[in-house]
Amino acid sequence: MSIQHFRVALIPFFAAFCLPVFAHPETLVKVKDAEDQLGARVGYIELDLNSGKILESFRPEERFPMMSTFKVLLCGAVLSRVDAGQEQLGRRIHYSQNDLVEYSPVTEKHLTDGMTVRELCSAAITMSDNTAANLLLTTIGGPKELTAFLHNMGDHVTRLDRWEPELNEAIPNDERDTTMPAAMATTLRKLLTGELLTLASRQQLIDWMEADKVAGPLLRSALPAGWFIADKSGAGERGSRGIIAALGPDGKPSRIVVIYTTGSQATMDERNRQIAEIGASLIKHW
């Protein structure tokens, strides 16, 4: 067993022997301040990774656009098919120029040779490549099948209805392509620590998230040296922004954090800054 596999296998073990965790309302004060600064709703939840206990939450059962955070769930569904012998990570998928959609920095470079399922998941999570996500959605049967996968996990809230990039439209009061912070946090925890996926697939999923290259201005910008984070960000229309993450000190994750916002007129930089400040408060009061 590799060191990384050992780390993920012992996530519940280490967490069980940690000192009790206590909620700190100071972080919620910052979440509410972010709402004021952005002029928009902000949803927040913080779960203990081992027990699933909610440590703090704000608007945990209000719907927010998922945006690209759905790509972690998508690759979880792909990995479940791999575990069941219905898919192979090494299978190569070929596609054409007509398949390319807006923001496809990886797939646009491989029109000639195609990409493997493993490479597509890596591109979808680490670079948020939209064509990679659409190609992977095709392998599982489309958005409705991802929703069905989530329902089978016990998540009857999260739903995907459309493809990239239309799913980022974020129309107010439109339930399409949305989740709730509580539902997303619980589902992410199941994917990373539950028995739904094999140990190898859980490790692969967290490795992809740990290698995320496009979430630097968010929670990662607030992390002290030595902290662990595996995350996936999302951005959408109407001032929408979000991030889902597993993080913790001492090089291992111990909490799940989900943050979503929508309806702001603020710039992307300002949305990023507010999420980073929430992260800084979380870490300060850990």
Rank of each mutant, 00 (worst) to 15 (best):
H24Q: 08
S254T: 08
C121Y: 00
V101Y: 11
L136I: 12
M66W: 06
I206C: 13
A170P: 00
A200F: 02
T267Q: 10
A246F: 08
Q265N: 12
R271N: 06
D36A: 11
E108V: 10
G236D: 00
L55I: 08
A34Y: 13
A77W: 03
S264A: 01
I125H: 05
S221N: 15
E119C: 00
Q86S: 11
L111V: 13
G248L: 06
G114D: 13
G154N: 04
F70L: 08
P253H: 12
E169G: 03
R159M: 15
Q204N: 04
P224V: 05
T198Q: 04
P165K: 01
G43T: 07
V78S: 03
L150A: 03
V157K: 07
R202Q: 02
P25T: 08
Q88P: 04
F64M: 11
S96L: 04
N272F: 07
E237P: 00
F58S: 07
G226H: 09
N50E: 12
V258M: 11
R41Q: 11
A222P: 14
K71N: 15
L223C: 02
S57I: 01
W286T: 03
V258Y: 07
K53L: 08
T107V: 04
M268T: 14
N130K: 10
R271C: 08
F64A: 03
R189D: 15
V257K: 15
A225Y: 02
A230T: 11
A200Y: 07
L111A: 09
G85R: 07
N272C: 07
A124P: 04
D269K: 15
C121K: 01
E119W: 05
D231E: 14
T116I: 02
S254R: 07
T131P: 05
L135M: 06
P60Y: 07
F228Q: 14
N272I: 06
I45N: 03
G43L: 08
S122L: 12
A280Q: 15
T186R: 00
E46W: 06
W227H: 06
G248H: 06
A185P: 10
P143C: 04
P143I: 09
S233V: 15
L205V: 05
T107H: 06
G236W: 14
S221P: 15
V72I: 06
R241D: 14
K190N: 14
L146F: 12
K53G: 05
T261I: 01
K32F: 04
G216C: 15
Q97E: 01
V214R: 15
M66Y: 05
G194I: 08
S201M: 04
E145T: 14
L49C: 00
L135P: 05
Y44W: 08
D155K: 09
A215I: 07
Q86D: 12
T262L: 03
V42K: 14
I275F: 15
R220P: 13
I256N: 08
S96C: 01
Y260G: 10
G76S: 06
V157H: 14
S240V: 12
A124D: 02
A40I: 11
G39K: 12
A40D: 06
A183N: 00
R238M: 07
F64N: 06
N98Y: 15
Q86F: 13
G242W: 03
F149V: 08
T147R: 00
Q274S: 11
M66P: 04
N272R: 08
D99K: 06
R273I: 14
T107F: 03
C75N: 00
T69Y: 09
L160P: 12
S221L: 14
N98E: 10
A235K: 15
R202W: 02
K71I: 12
P217C: 10
I244F: 12
E164W: 00
Q97K: 04
F70N: 05
S221M: 15
A148R: 08
Q37H: 13
T131E: 11
D207M: 06
S221I: 15
F70W: 15
E195T: 03
R81N: 04
R238V: 00
N50R: 10
R202C: 03
E61N: 03
L219I: 09
K53W: 04
I278L: 11
I54V: 10
T126N: 13
A133Q: 03
M67Y: 12
H94G: 06
V258I: 07
P60Q: 07
N50V: 11
E35W: 09
L205A: 04
V29Y: 15
P249Q: 12
V157W: 08
R241V: 13
G251S: 09
T139F: 06
I45W: 10
V117K: 03
D36T: 13
T186D: 12
T27R: 07
E56Q: 12
L199N: 07
H94F: 08
E166M: 06
S240K: 15
A211V: 10
V157Q: 14
M66D: 06
P181L: 01
P253T: 13
E277Q: 09
S233L: 14
A40W: 03
D161C: 01
G142R: 02
L49G: 00
E35C: 08
T198P: 02
Q86K: 11
G216N: 10
V106P: 09
T179D: 15
L192I: 01
G154D: 11
G154I: 03
T179Y: 15
L55G: 04
L89I: 02
G239D: 08
S57W: 14
N130V: 11
K71Q: 14
L79N: 00
G279M: 15
I275A: 10
L28N: 05
G279Q: 14
A185W: 12
G114A: 12
T27M: 11
V31W: 11
T178M: 10
D161E: 01
L137A: 04
R41I: 14
N173E: 09
S51T: 08
K71C: 00
L135H: 04
I45L: 12
L219D: 14
G141T: 02
L100E: 06
D83C: 02
Q265H: 10
G43K: 10
T147I: 05
T187D: 11
M268S: 15
G239W: 03
E166V: 09
G52Q: 12
T116Y: 00
G216I: 12
G234Q: 08
V258W: 03
S254P: 08
A148D: 10
A170I: 04
L219F: 15
E237C: 10
N152V: 13
A124N: 07
L160A: 07
R241E: 14
P105R: 04
K53I: 12
L38Q: 01
A211K: 15
